[in-house]
């Protein structure tokens, strides 16, 4: 457990492979806690965690809340509408106030890329990035990688396809950074406007035909497609998207039997994924949600449970 020295988790791009493995192994140890009758350990007893969500989210916030409670931390939730940001206070000032209230851990969801790094450089509290714009969503990336690793026993050499709106996706970025560090072959699939060829500079492959990856993929990770009103100029419509990139039943039938179907949620049934396919035995979508708690426990424990915060 000596490989982790950071007080924050701002992204997987900033981590080494050893640090990622450390978090995954810690999560494995914590996963058992959720399967007990008494789902609680005293690891963060006396610590205060603030879920500071400047952008709406239910599932991520709830997952962090449950993770913190299982570690015996005290949890406060603050959403944008309730916060002083509405009154013109800057993010920095709001966060300094949270620190002055002796929040040991601040879990930040914010629409601005870099907002977690911004706070991590200015506060002594641990900053956990719960999504910063289109930049990173590291705990989602970790829970996806955890789920894959649990099923395959490894990441290295696996063919992993991430399909959908990559350009605006923080989930995609965290997956890309983490998976590449652990030696996976990552292929991005989607329309050329949302998956520009330039992504290959990050070390991945880019494909604009979903047929290219179906037979060879060990994992397909489907990202939520935003509605047309938000992405009007990027593709003509959901109907065309489904016909070109949706994981329909005929396409799902061409996947290898061992291929995992993943989705960070919330899913649009009938858009990026066929409804029956989402419920099929290859789908691990709900397992991802369960694993998310163990991964977030590992992150909270690693960042704030160490010796650097005085007891």
């Amino acid at each position: 457990m000596s490989t982790w020295t950071k007080k924050d988790l701002v992204g997987l791009d900033a981590l080494t492979a050893a640090e990622i493995i450390h978090l995954l192994d810690t999560a494995k140890a914590f996963k058992g806690v959720g399967e007990r009758n008494l789902k609680k350990v005293p690891a963060l007893r006396g610590k205060t965690l603030v879920n500071f969500f400047v952008e709406p989210s239910t599932r991520t916030r709830t997952s962090f809340e449950i993770a913190a409670m299982r570690l015996s931390a005290d949890v406060v939730n603050i959403s944008a509408t309730a916060s002083s940001l509405q009154k013109g206070e800057t993010l920095k000032d709001t966060a300094l106030n949270l620190q002055a209230l002796r929040a040991d851990i601040i879990v930040l969801r914010h629409s601005s890329p870099g907002s977690s790094q911004f706070l991590s450089e200015r506060l002594e509290s641990s900053i956990i990035n719960a999504g910063d714009g289109a930049h990173e969503h590291p705990t989602q990336g970790l829970l996806d990688i955890f789920t894959i690793r649990e099923r395959f026993g490894r990441i290295e050499g696996l063919n992993i396809a991430i399909i959908g709106d990559i350009l605006f996706s923080r989930v995609a970025r965290s997956n890309i950074f983490g998976l590449l560090k652990l030696g996976a072959n990552v292929t991005l699939v989607g329309p050329s406007t949302l998956v520009p060829k330039r992504f290959e500079q990050l070390g991945v492959q880019v494909r604009h035909r979903i047929d290219d990856i179906l037979e060879t993929a060990d994992v397909v990770n489907l990202l939520r497609i935003q509605h047309e009103r938000q992405r009007k100029e990027y593709f003509p419509g959901l109907g065309e998207y489904v016909s070109l990139f949706g994981l329909t039943k005929p396409r799902a039938a061409r996947l290898a039997p061992h291929c995992l179907i993943m989705h960070p949620g919330p899913i649009n049934r009938g858009v990026e994924i066929d409804s029956d396919v989402a419920d099929s035995t290859q789908s691990v979508i709900l397992e991802q949600v369960t694993n998310g708690i163990a991964v977030r426990m590992a992150v909270l424990y690693s960042c704030a449970g160490g010796a650097h915060i005085p007891a």
């Binding site: 890329p113 910063d132 605006f168 330039r198 990050l202």
Partner: peptide, 9 residues
């Protein structure tokens, strides 16, 4: 460019 893709900006 590569950096805007990496940083999500």
């Amino acid at each position: 460019g590569e950096w805007s893709l990496r940083l999500g900006l």
